[in-house]
Nucleic acid binder design. Structure first.
Lengths: 139, 139
DNA sequence: ATGATTGCAAATCCTTTGCATTTGA
DNA sequence: TCAAATGCAAAGGATTTGCAATCAT
């Protein structure tokens, strides 16, 4: 049994935070912090990268936006060059293969994707689950 | 029309390369370069991080292993906090939403995942396709 | 008033790279 | 032999952080 308390203070609705959120929301693609910084700078020339990063992180942890990068932290490597799906342990952040019966083809409608012109090559599917070690640690 | 030539020299089967590949293959999880480096160092104390990185990169580009990190490059942010799937353009590396009719539920067998204890929260599904801008540029 | 947030700069983390030396084919 | 690959150390890009000043409540 474990109780997780997420402390996400965000007590002030600053100019910077509003502008960052507004500009991010106005975009159809999904910009990097740097790209957003350049845009924010147009209307707030004195804003700093630190502020952009801090706010994006805060908003993401509060659940108002989402950070999209399979990778939390450094790159990981798989000896098998294949599109098989992975899961990441929220505890230790390590990555593992899904059990063999949960193959990509069984989990994902690959033909439908192909019909729409998306390549299944380089496909990324990552889900989450506590690994055995971390599960044991909290029980 | 564009012809892509991938030049991946790898003319020598060095001690370092063999050890790196053997140790990576022996693992069930998917280690970072740093984790692998620590392991390689046990049997090759003089190996350098540069060599580990260079070999992992070489092996990945040759297709013998796979680099797994949704993120090529810096983090990207999505104003919608939601599990919707994305595609990445191989040309400009930007990230976009899939068309609405390709919803997560339509593409992925979420119930099957849940039945196996995987959380669909924080799920990452990323496919590839050239964006309109890059498609126009090569045609 | 006062504590959250900022700008700034330095620090940190991960990764790549230049170069002289070593080594596998 | 001799280019590929290494070790080392320095550079690079992305992100975080310490701190004094500022600003929202």
């Amino acid at each position: 049994m474990s109780i997780v308390v997420i402390i996400t203070n965000m007590k002030r609705n600053t100019q910077q935070r509003q502008v960052i959120l507004r500009l991010l929301s106005a975009r159809k693609d999904h910009p990097t912090a740097e790209e957003l910084y350049q845009e924010v700078r147009q209307e707030m020339p004195r804003v700093s990268m630190g502020t952009v990063y801090r706010n994006l992180d805060l908003l993401a942890r509060k659940g108002e936006i989402r950070r999209i990068d399979g990778a939390a932290g450094p790159s990981r490597f798989d000896p098998v060059n294949d599109n098989h799906p992975h899961y990441r342990c929220p505890g230790c952040n390590r990555v593992f293969d899904l059990p063999r019966d949960l193959s990509l083809e069984r989990l994902v409608d690959v033909p439908l994707l192909k019909k729409h012109g998306f390549t299944t090559d380089g496909l990324v599917l990552e889900v989450r689950k506590y690994c055995d070690v971390c599960r044991a640690a909290v029980s």
